[in-house]
Design a protein around this nucleic acid. Sequence first.
DNA 1: CGTGATCCTGACCATTTGGTCAACAAAGGA
DNA 2: TCCTTTGTTGACCAAATGGTCAGGATCACG
Lengths: 205, 205
Amino acid sequence: MADQMEPPRTRIQQKNRDLILEGALTAFSVNGFRGATVDQIAEAAGLSKPNVLYYFASKDDIHKTLLTTLLDMWLAPMIRIDPAGDPLAEVMGYVRAKLEMSRRFPRESRLFAYEILQGAPHLTEILGGSLREIVDTAAAILRGWMDQGRLARVDPHHLIFSIWALTQHYADFDVQVRAVLGPGHDPFVEADPFIENLYRKMLGV
Amino acid sequence: MADQMEPPRTRIQQKNRDLILEGALTAFSVNGFRGATVDQIAEAAGLSKPNVLYYFASKDDIHKTLLTTLLDMWLAPMIRIDPAGDPLAEVMGYVRAKLEMSRRFPRESRLFAYEILQGAPHLTEILGGSLREIVDTAAAILRGWMDQGRLARVDPHHLIFSIWALTQHYADFDVQVRAVLGPGHDPFVEADPFIENLYRKMLGV
DNA sequence: CGTGATCCTGACCATTTGGTCAACAAAGGA
DNA sequence: TCCTTTGTTGACCAAATGGTCAGGATCACG
């Protein structure tokens, strides 16, 4: 459903498009779509502004490309939940993968956070479409495990929401977390056992 | 520490400042600080743009006023945690109050979310100052209960973060939650028992 | 080497936007 | 009523910003 015969790219196109997307990710994740300027993106990419607009039709085009490109990566861990695996281990694996993504890719997390906060103008179809399907599939797997008594019964959808909320919080609200904890703390290192313990207690049978 | 002898206000000043702050809350919570324009705020308030800037020195001034005004309200529930109360009941009360605030004041939640996402340029001192003190106080109460064996032992700070994350998620990511659940669901109604069950299992002794 | 395609940029443009100001209107107190 | 204070606005401005374009530089390939 995704790729529709992309035009071939020269080496220079490949490199510069990557530079632009990289710079744009930084710019958008700090100030949001409207807050980021094409000049900022150009500078972060090490290119001139007209050159940026040579590779992308518009600022909006850059933003949309970023979002759709990164969405797959963002959702990948949920697709890897294995119905044949051990229920608690599968959930914990997903939780850990998601927290690890918040730690390693906070810019991506913030990019999506801004988009959703704004009402997801570029993602509306996806949210109610493929995302919903993926979530429903995962929820069905979870519900199956609960029916078999291998996982404590809770609302599967809200279980997934809780995982998103808990893990992304550490990326999106990083400054708040760090300010409250004070220096000498690694939020992600501390969050890992806390969250693991949380789901072990909630879902253990 | 807060109020420093505000200048007296006429009835008209009071009314128009309120109108402006109300309109600005809507504007800022939808598009963020940079995304909202003074014209939008003026229109939402039913005033002309110059008139808006007659009551507030700048767009930034409106924003800062909103943030500081609403911060007290936002933190109030945490201050009400009673060391003499029943541990689990106190925590559950706080959780429910926080979820209720997300439900009734989603604009405020998004306003703060935008601010934190942006790196909290207007709140840095507060985050590491009074907010940190309030959180530390609450954390100390929680830790005391855990020492007494009246609450399962977990990291108190991350317990608080988890409550923030879980409850605010339903306000900040509302469109995503609704898109995934589909029509016919009330996210807040469903979230309430889920979250209550979560903390009961994690904190019960 | 030559030449067409690709790549790059300075200069420019139209629009948006935060903010100002002079002048006018409305209150309000003596 | 008169006059000072307060409230309101149309017109305007400078800066920022997304985007364009003509022309020059560079590359790739026969």
